[in-house]
């Protein structure tokens, strides 16, 4: 008798489970997903280039100030095979990496401190957002006064541009952890440092990644502004080459460099986007339309 009851229960349980789970599985091939994500972007780029070409055809501006797409892309082909391009790209990427890494370290530390210490939040919480709205180019006069036309001036502005976004991401992430998860974490024995390691940091991760993504966008913009203004004669960089292209009125080269800047920014942004989607998929909060 008791066995009968048990068996009936077991089959009911697995039956209910199977019914609940089946509806949640969906099958889409990897290639299909890739294609459905790619073609709208390709189409948009195609349309943008077409509009550019149409504007050139109208003769609105002479070709030496607005070159047609074909000329720019053929120049881009030559540009990326030159040693100067790779040297410049290396310098720029190194500055971006160092500046962003420092901004991450500072942003995480400040964000954590402000989120946990009440008095710090009252003192500088709103200032972080204020800093975020400050256009990075406005920092350069001060940076140049402090550090002259040097690497440090660029570094200073890149960090100031990116760190507030990252700090805000951390603060937001910690503020919005569901209290229930903290209670559950404490109940299963996570206290102090282990509560941070196993509950607080993973719970705040989506917001932290969003902060890093935004921080990167600010860092890249600040870096480009910096390289345009702070041209160090002995060291070539993408921004310096853009300045030279303008001074020498090399319109196709100027636009080639702009395309490079756009592509680098997009590639890094896409990496953060992929990390963000991976986290959200894991959590089960990925918006179907956004997938």
């Amino acid at each position: 008798m008791a066995n009968d009851v048990l068996t009936r229960d077991d089959s009911t349980i697995s039956g209910l489970d199977a019914l609940e789970i089946a509806s949640k599985q969906k099958v889409t091939s990897r290639a299909g997903r890739l294609w459905s994500g790619t073609w709208p972007k390709v189409a948009a780029i195609g349309i943008a280039i077409f509009i550019w070409q149409v504007v050139v055809w109208t003769g609105w501006k002479p070709p030496y100030s607005l070159p047609p797409p074909a000329e720019v892309f053929s120049d881009l082909g030559t540009y990326v095979t030159q040693g100067a391009f790779w040297h410049g790209l290396a310098t720029t990427l190194r500055r971006a990496a160092v500046g962003f890494a420092a901004a991450v370290a500072i942003g995480l530390a400040i964000g954590l401190a402000v989120a946990r210490v009440r008095i710090l939040r009252a003192a500088i919480g709103s200032m972080i957002t204020a800093l975020q709205t400050m256009p990075s180019i406005a920092w350069f006069p001060l940076a140049i006064l402090l550090f002259q036309l040097s690497e440090q001036a660029i570094f200073f502005v890149v960090v100031l541009g990116a760190a507030p976004s990252i700090a805000n991401g951390v603060i937001y992430g910690l503020d919005y952890i569901p209290p229930l998860l903290l209670r559950a974490g404490r109940n299963i024995g996570a206290r102090g440092a282990s509560l941070y390691r196993y509950v607080i940091v993973p719970a705040a991760l989506p917001a932290i990644i969003a902060g890093l993504k935004q921080g990167w966008a600010f860092a890249w913009r600040s870096l480009m502004a910096g390289e345009l203004l702070v041209v160090i004669a002995t060291k070539t960089s993408i921004g310096a080459q853009l300045t030279y292209a303008r001074e020498l009125s090399e319109a196709p080269r100027l636009m080639s460099i702009m395309i490079v800047i756009l592509v680098v920014g997009l590639v890094v942004d896409a990496a953060f986007g992929a990390a963000d989607r991976a986290v959200r998929r894991r959590w089960g909060v990925l918006d179907q339309a956004g997938a």
């Binding site: 559950a184 109940n187 299963i188 024995g189 196993y198 993973p202 894991r282 959590w283």
Partner: peptide
């Protein structure tokens, strides 16, 4: 400490079911 359960499962969404059950043992 006594084990506590809530109206919500309060599982950690970033961990698999296995890893959720494993965490108290790890701690």
């Amino acid at each position: 400490t006594p084990g506590l359960m809530f109206q919500e499962p309060a599982l950690f969404p970033w961990l698999t079911v296995e890893a959720n059950v494993e965490l108290p043992l790890k701690l």
